[in-house]
Design a binder for these strands. Sequence first.
DNA 1: CTTGGAATGTCAACAAGACTGACGTAAATT
DNA 2: AATTTACGTCAGTCTTGTTGACATTCCAAG
Lengths: 166, 166
Amino acid sequence: MAEAPTGGESLLFLTDENIRKGVEAMFFAYRGFTADPDRILEGMAYGRAHHRAVHFIHRSPGTTVGNLLAILGVTKQSLNRVLRSLFEDGLVEARVGKKDKRERHLYLTAKGAALERELSDAQRSRMRAAYRAAGPAAVQGFRTVLEAMMDPEQRKQYQTLKEGQP
Amino acid sequence: MAEAPTGGESLLFLTDENIRKGVEAMFFAYRGFTADPDRILEGMAYGRAHHRAVHFIHRSPGTTVGNLLAILGVTKQSLNRVLRSLFEDGLVEARVGKKDKRERHLYLTAKGAALERELSDAQRSRMRAAYRAAGPAAVQGFRTVLEAMMDPEQRKQYQTLKEGQP
DNA sequence: CTTGGAATGTCAACAAGACTGACGTAAATT
DNA sequence: AATTTACGTCAGTCTTGTTGACATTCCAAG
């Protein structure tokens, strides 16, 4: 993978053709990325939105509704529909904030954690296989490019999560 | 969760934590990936589905409906809704197949090509910036991992496109 | 203490984009 | 002549997203 054969750097990797390949790679890869959890979810009364909510609640237990709203980038009405069904089915519970009682802190129940694990295992297993096949150097490049593609605000949230709370 | 740090290669990049970061990177990056064209489309009577159709018709002019169906992975009813509006607005035209008259070969009109360019320019500009920031080695890794994440069938389609027809 | 604003939740209505199922037509294949 | 293929269309459903309006609860500033 050595670069810069010429004087400055070879910018051949920035051709329109190459960029377009990248666009298409994102398209097809994202389909694969969501395929396994989607398969599990279909049939249940849940969808991708539930998966995302459960993922980030698992990731940051005790997060507030407003926090989740910012991470997911949807309206509260949309998130609320999802959360309501998760409450009703006993997958997520909301505890009123101690300091600020307006806030609801969200936690997975044992049942919710079980679903999270099932979904994430499926998704991670594909990602792990891809990582293993590609090798550590490729993985580092993968993450670098993805990070560069994010909006600055998204990147900030991503990085906050990255170091993240337990 | 650490694996076999000894012997051959360090497998530290395969920890659950690392994989999860990859999952989240995909989530946030895909948001960025679609953000610019979505912004352009909003207000027009079009959405992401129209963008995808226009992209792949541009990519493979003369492709058939069935072909597009396979690439996009949607039902014909869903695609048909999109194509109909693109026909009506004069962005795409369908020519009956010469050899097989059941087939419709799809082409962008000048107007359609203009929209394609507008959308793709926006999307590619972000991708190009990310590529430039990350460098050629990272880009190669990026593509390697994405390719490994695809379903085998999707990968085949992707690779066919990659070398692709004119 | 009162009031303003913030955080949350709820109801109603709606749209995009996906899905299934059923049916029709024309053309190619057998 | 019969079957299969490629495409189109009608009708209905589902998930996920949107806006707008309004209630509740509660912190904090006047």
